[in-house]
Design a protein around this nucleic acid. Structure first.
Length: 294
DNA sequence: CCTTGTGTTCTCCG
DNA sequence: CCGGAGAACACAAG
């Protein structure tokens, strides 16, 4: 489940890999995932160049060199953006891999595979694959006006100067839902999904079910601090790979090692030793410690 | 039937 | 009964 840290990791990686490279080919094997006209999609992108890769919440949007249209990419739950260099002219690389005998499952990354629904070839023979197991993700070309409309729907962007305690508290104000649903609401705070919502609540010592009007100033401050600290640390660790997520090189993120509650049902809480509980809240699996969250 | 991000639809309350 | 907020559902597929 790519959330802000995972999408940001991919954005940073791809920015170093594909900016300025001419797109020589566009392949779409599942047209349903292109949410704008397919012919136009192929026509605009072929021969074009990615100019800048941006992110807002969990949404990636890419500016193009030879068009004013912008490419939106959403990975939803199981989308991946994997970059691979083209085959080397000189032999040797595959030999080294064979001799090394390490555990990398080369079959899995023999791309395109059956989940590679859209991919781009570049002038240097490298390729970018959009893989998606459950096919909720999409790509879409939008004009400036539609981009603006889409971006305007997002709430405060964490890790920017806009993410002040004052703005965070303001966003919570007058809301009557529980803090978990609020953290998941992209129109209020952008980029937090199920994993980080649970982790932020645990950091703050706040039960996910707590109604926002009942939160104290101190608790709001802790939630704000936790959001910032956890998302930053998760980016540093290149995201959380719980099952499907991979970075642009197909590698797993390391943040799973730092998860305190998510996916730890029945395990002892690292803070107090109490068993981690799991319930259903805001339509999502929700993990917490009864002892240190109130 | 479980899993989840988001857009859409339904319901409820003042 | 209206508006808006929040909850529930739809989507896909392993």
């Amino acid at each position: 489940m790519p959330e802000l840290p995972e999408v940001e990791t991919i954005r940073q990686d791809l920015s170093e890999k594909i900016i300025g490279k001419k797109i020589t080919g566009v392949t779409v094997t599942k047209p349903r995932l292109v949410k704008s006209g397919l012919n136009n999609f192929i026509q605009i992108l072929t021969g074009n160049t990615f100019k800048k890769i941006n992110r807002r919440g969990k949404l990636v949007y890419v500016e193009l060199k030879k068009s004013d249209l912008v490419l939106l990419i959403h990975l939803k739950m199981t989308g991946q953006l994997i970059y691979q260099k083209g085959p080397r002219r000189q032999g040797g690389v595959s030999k080294i891999i064979a001799a090394g005998g390490h555990s990398f499952k080369s079959m899995e990354w023999d791309l395109p595979n059956k989940y590679s629904h859209i991919y781009f070839s570049f002038q240097d023979n490298s390729r970018l694959f959009f893989n998606d197991l459950r096919t909720f993700g999409y790509m879409k070309l939008v004009d400036e006006k539609e981009l603006k409309q889409v971006l305007n729907k997002f709430g405060i962007e964490p890790l920017t100067p806009d993410f002040t305690l004052k703005n965070f508290a303001q966003a919570l104000k007058h809301r009557k839902t529980n803090i978990k649903a609020l953290l998941l609401n992209q129109q209020i705070i952008a980029g937090i999904g199920n994993i980080y919502a649970d982790e932020i609540c645990h950091y703050a010592g706040v039960l996910p079910s707590r109604r926002t009007p009942d939160l104290t100033i101190a608790e709001i401050k802790k939630l704000w601090q936790g959001s910032s600290l956890i998302l930053k640390k998760a980016i540093k660790e290149r995201g959380t790979t719980f099952n499907n997520y991979r970075d642009a090189d197909g590698k797993k993120g390391n943040f799973i090692k730092f998860l305190k509650v998510f996916g730890r049902k029945g395990e002892a809480c690292g803070k107090c030793g109490e068993k981690i509980k799991k319930i259903r809240l805001a339509g999502r699996g929700t993990h917490f410690c009864e002892m240190c969250q109130h």
